[in-house]
Design a binder for these strands. Structure first.
Lengths: 206, 206
DNA sequence: TCGCATCCGTAACCGCAATTACGGATAGCG
DNA sequence: CGCTATCCGTAATTGCGGTTACGGATGCGA
């Protein structure tokens, strides 16, 4: 099987895995169920992914790719506008069925491998970008001076709060897009009040 | 077995259960291991708790009792001082090994029973108390006017952030008491800046 | 065309832990 | 003193799902 063909096949398998997860929870993602749903054999699954944890690690990696592609908005343009666009999207993503299922799987993994991968490709990748955007906003005067890393942590705390753990334990349903938008807006407004811009020249829009 | 004797025996069993959890993770809490550690029989465990989920529910209930006893500080005296004392304790509790293990167990429970119990006896019990304290602080002028419930949510978000889910997936170790204290202080300071007290008479101390 | 590698489908194998069953001991109680 | 209820200790039972094994099909290079 040529390399690109195999890439495509893996994408199919992982898509089937996510379909199982989103439909029946991460408990529904058994190797047998995946083999049947993807039309693959056990032998292939184990040859390609090693074991069940490896499969989940691959899912984490794929999720990270998808997430990163939706985050390019942070790179350029008005940083505050970028944060305003990022907030709802990020919130919806981390409280979505996929991310929640991955979190549950990581919580159930005694080795911590999955959790480390999830954190590395998720939070640890996103927060520095947010800190960069905040630093640019501070440079422009759209936010008052301060430690960008600390401000980014505060923003994340305001935006996400404890929603993820509450989702993980099934205490709350997935928030609606409207809820995500409102919460993101409130988080950004609070960030502005915690780092109030100096008065004379509030911001640029270039 | 008389009722009080049985109460004491249950307390022993549940203490043994927590000891197992804190030592080897929630995966180490098997019914057999608990029976041996507590010197109890399978028959008794199943007669008293029904099944494994029932056992965890009992652990949640006991944890809630212990937590509530440490929260009486919110009732009286200076509300801001009460929040200042509560913050580090609450943060240390929800990121402690016990609470994290219960969260993991709830995440692994497909029925959501455990998660509902955990939320009801935990967050849903605490946040209204915090809102009450904030309302009193607003009345006294120690905080500026606003919606106490909303302010309580903000305080929780600032205090806890996403620490719980990161603990659950083993992305971070348990925070030290110093870290808890610093974070709680920062959260309260931020709350003051988001709800700045009016100038003339900042607070009372009665 | 032949041989090899890889894949599919299905069927074992296997360990683990929840759950159930049972015999012996002990305490309250008429 | 027997009787009953409850508990302890240990041993089956059971089901589930990860993992492994194997026979047949398919494609690809020599």
């Amino acid at each position: 099987m040529k390399a690109d063909r195999r890439q495509a096949r893996q994408a199919e398998i992982e898509a089937a895995a996510y379909a199982l997860i989103e439909q029946g929870g991460e408990g529904a993602l058994t190797m047998q169920a995946l083999a049947r749903a993807a039309g693959a054999s056990m032998e292939t699954l184990y040859r390609w992914y090693g074991d069940r944890t490896g499969l989940f690690a691959a899912l984490v990696a794929r999720n990270a790719e998808d997430a990163a592609s939706g985050m390019s908005m942070l790179a350029d343009g008005d940083p505050m506008a970028a944060l305003a666009r990022l907030g709802p999207k990020l919130l919806a993503m981390v409280t979505g069925d996929r991310a929640v299922a991955l979190n549950r799987a990581a919580a159930a993994d005694p080795t911590g491998t999955l959790g480390a991968a999830l954190a590395a490709s998720g939070r640890d990748a996103v927060v520095p970008r947010i800190a960069d955007a905040i630093a640019r906003a501070m440079d422009r005067g759209a936010l008052g001076p301060g430690d960008p890393a600390e401000a980014a942590e505060t923003f994340i705390a305001l935006l996400l709060g404890d929603l993820q753990i509450r989702r993980a334990i099934r205490a709350i349903p997935a928030p609606s897009p409207d809820t995500c938008a409102a919460r993101a807006e409130a988080a950004l407004a609070a960030l502005r009040r915690l780092y109030p811009p100096v008065l004379d020249e509030p911001a640029r829009t270039d």
